[in-house]
């Protein structure tokens, strides 16, 4: 039985001076150790949602609104405890690098929590080797690539040992190689440390491996479910202003031509395998 780690009820948010709500009455749940992808077009409220979860933004006043993280309700009293549980990797690799070099940056979150220095040294080393950046300990940010900087940002987060890691379009400024290596790293950490991952992304292909997908459109939740379920609902996806992943697009084109692919074929590898089998049968 998996534990419920995030529970959000009736969450709304309006930016100052805006006329419309950025988020309208959102409710959803996330199970521990799952990978949830949040997708939606620009301005659908994806990033706003992530910032509400760790109290960077304060939701609209409403007695029915509830945000519960790992059993703790988000309020001004619990705010800092909740920030210990959630780490966010932001979009721009440069603008979240606080330290003057790699190890200083990883230590930043620990310094904020007043962790003793001897403990910090151990945790910084462990976090850096977990992301494969130990040989860059003294490197300054301008010597690193975007992907390396994001690795450092991830190290800074896992040094705090949070239960939840939020990727707020963390790979959108990286080249394909950097993106893949970051996603692989997060997947490894998710399995090793039992972390829950919330990935906010533009890239539809990235969501294929997730356990759960939440679709947002103009601040409203339109769907939540497994990738197979979400991507078989063409109409909803089109309406939300999104495209289908290549694999589902292919499935559709094939079915138009009379080749039906079973719904459990949901990744590129499985598709290749299935088509090869189909071919040998014919």
């Amino acid at each position: 039985m998996t534990k419920q780690i995030i529970e959000v009820e009736n969450l709304s948010y309006k930016y100052k001076d805006a006329t419309d709500l950025a988020l309208k009455n959102i409710s959803f749940k996330v199970q521990e150790n799952q990978w949830l992808s949040i997708i939606g077009h620009n301005g659908s409220g994806k990033s706003t949602l992530s910032r509400l979860l760790n109290g960077l933004l304060v939701p609209e006043e409403n007695p029915d609104t509830k945000i519960v993280i790992d059993g703790l309700e988000l309020n001004s009293e619990n705010l800092w405890k909740i920030r210990d549980k959630i780490g966010i990797v932001f979009q721009n690799p440069d603008n979240q690098f606080v330290g003057t070099n790699v190890q200083d940056d990883v230590a930043f979150g620990l310094e904020n929590r007043n962790v003793p220095r001897s403990e910090m040294i151990k945790r910084v080393d462990a976090a850096l080797s977990a992301v494969g950046m130990q040989s860059y300990k003294n490197a300054e940010p301008q010597m690193l690539s975007g992907g390396q900087k994001q690795r450092v940002a991830i190290a800074g987060i896992i040094a705090i040992e949070p239960k939840i890691i939020i990727l707020d379009e963390s790979t959108s400024m990286l080249d394909p190689e950097g993106r893949n290596s970051i996603l692989k790293l997060i997947r490894k950490l998710q399995q090793q440390k039992g972390m829950t991952v919330i990935s906010i992304t533009h890239n539809i292909e990235e969501t294929l491996h997730s356990d759960d997908i939440l679709v947002l459109d103009s601040g409203k939740k339109v769907a939540q479910g497994k990738p197979e379920k979400i991507f078989s609902n063409m109409e909803m996806i089109k309406k939300a202003g999104l495209g289908l992943p290549f694999i589902y697009e292919l499935k559709q084109e094939l079915s138009k031509n009379g080749v039906e692919i079973p719904s459990d074929v949901s990744t590129e590898e499985k598709m290749v395998e299935y088509l090869c089998q189909l071919n040998s049968k014919m």
Binding site: R83, I88, V98, G109, E111, N112, N114, M120, V124, I160
Partner: peptide, 18 residues
């Protein structure tokens, strides 16, 4: 935003890495 989400609190006691 990044600093705050990483637990920076103004005026709070911080330890030192360097």
């Amino acid at each position: 935003v990044a600093m705050e989400s990483r637990g920076y609190r103004e005026g709070e006691k911080r330890s030192r890495y360097r």
